[in-house]
Nucleic acid binder design. Structure first.
Lengths: 345, 345
DNA sequence: TTGTATGCGTTATCAG
DNA sequence: CTGATAACGCATACAA
């Protein structure tokens, strides 16, 4: 494995200069910089993370907190972050974090002490804890928020556009001819739930000309059992919807089950759409039309921000609010409504 | 942060002695050892991973390969490993690994070069790749296998007893009075599937006195749609089972759906049991009786083996085959069969 | 059984 | 703009 000394020799400069180039410091003549870069790639040089960390006291790894092992969202994001870090030549160090415990502050400090990470990504629900922000700021750790409920000034964030995605998938249903559509919403405290519901209502309003027309909304709270009840209620109402848009794929799965119990077939009798692009959406049958969370794009954007925020300490920190485009995945759970219901308002 | 020097001063010895104590070397007087240990805990000393790694060229972290982000098994194990490592004062470095690509060897070597891990845990399906074993052995990386299909001599392994667990959950069903029980098996190439099926058949045989009596087996292949079909077939057969034991929680969920379509209620008309202890088992309703994989115990055992295999290089390597006890989680998906079917053989 | 001195690959100081 | 040299915390050859 080549070291900084080998690079310095090859480029005919001192190791300090090589170090300067690596760290994107300003005062280096551009030709010198070029020579060093050349030498580095010729030798396939890769700096020793250990030596770097030992000297600077800071790890190059990116830290991430994990609070709920059974959360599909967190584990998907975790995977995407690993991938993004790997692509960017960095590493991800993840720590368990129990936000409910009173020891959380010590827990966090132990994590920072041991890992020496100097930058982190905060995912929901950690990204909404003011105390957590303060603790990080106090220790001078840079961080980026993923899908925060509220933005925070001076801190960059990355998110998808939940409202718009909800609008789009509702429009898809409308385009198929559905006029009476149910929505099983998520937990009202969850920012994304509110956005998804609003997007749904916006699309319904645009189609009918009046807010609320044709829309049937229930609070599912992201809970399977509750969603099951809500779906059953909707499907047994006198004027039952011909399509249901659930705010999560799990709740969409619950809707499948409710439909099954009532002898209704998806998508013949009832169309179902979900949200998240969870594994279950591919697994269940018929496969579920849903909004895929852009985990990869979100992770890449977060790593990218962290890469840029670190070296350039010249002047003030440039923060940004990054919206990552999503995809609607059309699968087999949505069809046209029965003809006699198609144009009924 | 205290360093080895602070500890040495406090204990009144040289740093070399402290180093010896840390690494569990033999030639240290036990009183000296005690003094050093005391000083370490007084100062809340924690060795710098960076310095250690720089000096030795090896990281203290434990490596793990991840191949399928949507695999609940892998992500659960991942989480358990993080926890276990954290408890043992070690770190987990996980790498993506695409076993299908031809570049896998370079991918693995890049991982080893960059992370410098000297020990790893291999989870399914990686633990069954002979080429992977060879590659690791070649680079002198110690590893432990988790739930391998076949044991490998000279390599330790950790697993749960799938056969026994399947037998036990089947016995639970038998005890409730079920005599005709269906089993939706996993993929036949998967070692665990075979064990689970065998355990099921063993229990049925023990109860009836004859192999196969009362048992209805279908190949579900761990696939939702296929399991759905299998369950529908079973439930519409003339002599339908009063209980179904699915080899995975996902397939149990498919069974719920099949039951729903046929107007059958769980557990009143049909009892369902699963296997894995996946998040979905708690989420679906009624909550699913299942075998919980002992992820935590498996991870702890693996880390423990790795902790012991490393320092004691005196003599030959002691390998072990560790079976971790599991738990049957009784929830709400199993009940007594209708009276008239209870004793029917 | 214990201690001393050296070097691992970086970054930072300070002088050119 | 560039370079010589001293740390950083630990492990180990070598010495006692």
């Amino acid at each position: 494995m080549p070291t900084i000394i080998d690079v310095a020799k090859k480029a005919g400069v001192s190791i300090k200069t090589v170090s300067r180039v690596m760290n994107n410091e300003a005062r280096v003549r551009s030709e010198t910089r070029r020579k060093v870069r050349q030498a580095m790639s010729d030798l396939d040089y890769r700096p020793s993370a250990a030596a770097r960390q030992m000297r600077s006291g800071k790890s190059t790894a990116i830290g991430m907190l994990y609070s709920d092992p059974s959360s599909g969202y967190q584990s998907q994001l975790n995977h995407a972050m690993m991938q993004a870090c790997s692509d960017a030549g960095r590493y991800l160090t993840v720590g368990l974090f129990d936000e409910t415990k009173r020891q959380w502050k010590r827990q966090l400090e132990a994590f920072l002490d041991r890992t020496k990470v100097s930058c982190m990504v905060l995912v929901p629900p950690m990204c909404d804890s003011r105390a957590l922000h303060d603790c990080l700021a106090e220790r001078d750790v840079k961080y980026v928020l993923i899908s925060p409920s509220r933005e925070k000034s001076g801190v960059s964030s990355v998110a998808m556009d939940d409202k718009r995605a909800a609008r789009e998938i509702t429009e898809h249903l409308l385009q198929l001819g559905h006029r009476r559509i149910g929505h099983i919403a998520g937990h009202p405290d969850h920012a994304a739930s509110v956005l998804r519901r609003t997007g749904f209502l916006d699309a319904m309003e645009a189609a009918s000309g009046r807010r609320g027309t044709g829309a049937v909304v229930s609070e599912g709270r992201f809970d399977f059992r509750r969603a099951l009840e809500m779906a059953e209620t909707m499907l047994t109402a006198e004027a039952r919807p011909t399509a249901i848009f659930a705010a999560s794929d799990e709740m969409a799965a619950a809707t499948y089950m409710a439909a099954g119990r009532l002898g209704l077939s998806v998508p013949r009798d009832i169309s179902v759409a979900g949200f998240d692009g969870a594994p279950i959406a591919e697994i269940i049958w018929p496969s579920l039309t849903t909004v895929a969370q852009p985990y990869g794009g979100i992770a890449r954007a977060a790593v990218d921000i962290l890469n840029r925020v670190e070296p350039g300490e010249d002047g003030e920190i440039h923060t940004e609010k990054n919206i990552v485009p999503h995809n609607i995945i059309i699968r087999n759970s949505c069809g046209k409504p029965p003809r006699h219901l198609r144009e009924a308002k």
